[in-house]
């Protein structure tokens, strides 16, 4: 069952050079209890798309079209006041770079209790504290560290605090924006394991953003690949990884060295993404694609080619 359905979403940023079409006609959905991965290079619109769900975009961003349906209600049309009640209570975020995502002047305990006391009337401070301590233990941090300040934790611990904090109100959806990017590989593995465990335990639905395909293929049920503001491929994670239908997905996967395969120098993708101030109506990857021909110059058309597997490439293999 779809818990979240993004339909035809477009987002633009005001800038001095003109409107930047950061997200164009994106279609995505999240099924209950699954983990959806969103991948793509920097600036492809993955963070913009996902942060638009709890409407946490900066002030110069405008949702110019489309719907974000959550429980049948369009979040894109809600007022700021209505969104305040939904944030963290229903949709929580594990922010990128936990280093600065915590307030340096408040104890982590206070910061974790804040959403509980804000959203749940009638919950006492003692109850909130007990819940927070339990969650801290769950992510492997001793409960007595409740009164410590952020600077007294390591980077990996802060990220675990962020994950525990995202769970305090038992949200329905968690958006994890590159939750492991700033961490070293060992800690990355721990955090991912923890996220997987918690989604099962709390029956969470999660959207996970990353530019690391190996991380996503291991963790996610389904996967969306974004390029220059568009979703170019969307489907079952294993399927997308093994059977990429869009040339960009294929190139992205092959830019990773294979540990068991031949020792080859991994190929890059020459060229640059198109300008998002005047984005093309056709496939955005056209300029860099090896398989392009004149048939690619028609309007970008995102279609289901095999059941549950969507792509915008007309040369799908």
């Amino acid at each position: 069952m779809k818990i979240l359905d993004i339909k035809d979403l477009s987002i633009e940023f005001k800038s001095k050079a003109g409107m930047v079409h950061a997200v164009q006609n994106v279609n995505l959905w999240l099924n209950e209890g699954e983990i959806l991965g969103v991948a793509g290079e920097s600036g492809c619109g993955k963070t913009t798309t996902t942060l638009a769900i709890p409407r946490l975009l900066p002030k110069n961003a405008v949702i110019t079209g489309g719907e974000i349906l959550f429980n049948g209600e369009d979040l894109a049309a809600k007022s700021e006041k209505e969104m305040e009640a939904i944030r963290w209570k229903d949709i929580a975020v594990v922010f990128q770079g936990a280093m600065n995502a915590l307030n340096p002047l408040k104890t982590i305990g206070n910061q974790m209790m804040e959403p509980i006391l804000l959203h749940e009337e009638g919950v006492s401070k003692a109850e909130a504290e007990a819940r927070v301590k339990e969650l801290l233990e769950q992510v492997g941090i001793a409960g007595h560290r409740f009164n410590n300040y952020p600077h007294e934790f390591s980077g990996g611990m802060k990220q675990r605090v962020m994950i525990a904090m995202a769970l305090v109100c038992r949200p329905k959806i968690i958006i994890a924006d590159e939750p492991v990017t700033a961490l070293d590989v060992m800690i990355q593995a721990q955090i991912l394991e923890l996220l997987k465990k918690l989604t099962k335990e709390y029956k969470l639905s999660m959207i996970m953003i990353s530019h690391d395909l190996s991380v996503l293929s291991e963790l996610c049920d389904r996967m969306a690949i974004m390029y220059a503001g568009r979703v170019v491929e969307f489907g079952d994670a294993k399927d997308v990884f093994k059977n990429p239908k869009h040339e960009y997905t294929d190139k992205l996967i092959h830019s990773l060295p294979d540990i068991s395969g031949d020792r080859v120098f991994t190929g890059g993708i020459p060229g640059y993404p198109p300008s998002l101030i005047e984005p093309p109506a056709h496939c955005p990857f056209y300029d860099r694609c090896e398989r392009r021909d004149d048939s690619c110059l028609g309007d970008f058309n995102f279609t289901e080619i095999t059941p549950g597997h969507w792509t915008g490439c007309i040369h799908h293999r």
Binding site: A85, R87, W88, F95, N100, A101, N103, L118
Partner: peptide, 16 residues
């Protein structure tokens, strides 16, 4: 700062 976005994400009003 990032923690201001966190605070907004928690559902705090601008005043808070």
């Amino acid at each position: 700062e990032d923690f201001i976005l966190t605070a907004k994400g928690k559902g705090l009003s601008e005043k808070k």
